[in-house]
Design a protein around this nucleic acid. Structure first.
Lengths: 194, 194
DNA sequence: ATATAATTCTGAACATCGTTCATTAAAAGG
DNA sequence: CCTTTTAATGAACGATGTTCAGAATTATAT
């Protein structure tokens, strides 16, 4: 039995990613199994493999959507703040808020180390995100190009650490309210003097 | 067939953890399967379950050993440096060096989010590590109690982030040499003025 | 219209995983 | 020597990712 529903390959691909995203968001990354996903979209498990090489690729597509969502919110934060230190604060808080609001999706993104290198479209997404932050740091903190590059990586990594330790409660669980204070303290050295 | 080799339960427990540790260190966390572990110690898979409730418990014991190893090296760093800012630098570099040197073990420690709360002995291990750092920060940086508590968490989380992003190459891969520069930049604001 | 080709979906099958447990072998005790 | 206790087994169960020969449907050609 074939063609039970008329979905173009692209539509079906999008349907799979959407269902996978919902599954991870609701029940965590471990709940994303081929059979559960197939049941959710009303297809047989094998159908997924006609559109994705394996389940890792499905999960990576979910992560891509998560990164896109973060980028949208960071862009909104840029648009809503003046081009000074307060924008950097807003970006950092938006990052933390997004990760907290989509905790299962965010945790799933870092749960399993990827074997092999990430596909180009995924690296491009990351690069795009990174460039956005770097541009804002350069503009708002008046750093030199080399310094803003390093500072971006430092703040990015530090934010990642704060967020992860907050979310999964590992290593001396950090309360959610304390996370904001930590981000403040992280950025404090970069605040213009006065 | 029973009692083929004479191991007390404690010896066998230690043997299992040791073999599991070697397995993770050599082939990564995903290679730690009940059957592979059993084969490595010359027992049947079921034997593992006589000594551990499940494989997660074995993995957690491995992580406990990893944390103990880190604590030893941090203590050595304390003993080898004067009680000033340079000691904080040495601690941070020791942390990064340990994670890098035991990359598979370190990555495995953060690969899967733990369901439920961690056992008490594990939380005590973490607390012990954290207390060591907090005491040194308090002593070497002349911070108040509340401030040293927050600063410890901040630096801990930031170090975690730098280390993780360096090791698994995710998110704008940070080169190993660049990681040291990032740690330097992270600590720079706390360097005594001059 | 009819036949043929191309597409698309199925679901049984395979290997491997964690885990359980009735069974069996070995040691200890009477 | 017999009995009890302990320790180890390995077959078995359910669930996993993945494959693929075949079935069902649509498109195309004659």
């Amino acid at each position: 039995m074939a063609r039970r529903k008329d979905h173009t390959p692209d539509e079906l691909r999008a349907l799979i990613v959407q269902a996978a995203r919902a599954l991870v968001a609701q029940k965590g990354g471990a709940a994303l199994t081929a059979r559960a996903l197939a049941a959710r979209i009303g297809y047989a498990p094998g159908t997924i493999y006609n559109l994705f090489p394996d389940m890792d690729a499905v999960l990576l597509a979910v992560h891509g959507a998560t990164l896109a969502g973060l980028q949208d919110e960071l862009a909104a934060a840029v648009a809503a703040t003046p081009a000074d230190f307060s924008r950097i604060q807003a970006l950092a808080q938006a990052y933390c808020a997004f990760a907290e609001r989509h905790a299962p999706l965010w945790l799933a993104m870092f749960a399993t180390p990827h074997r092999g290198r990430l596909p180009r479209w995924y690296r491009a997404r990351l690069q795009s995100l990174f460039s956005l932050l770097e541009a804002e740091l350069h503009a708002c903190l008046k750093l030199g190009p080399a310094e803003s590059r390093r500072t971006t990586r430092l703040l990015w990594a530090a934010l990642h650490g704060i967020t992860m330790l907050t979310l999964d409660g590992r290593l001396q669980a950090i309360g959610k309210s304390e996370a904001r204070a930590l981000v403040e303290a992280l950025l404090a050295p970069y605040r213009p003097h006065g």
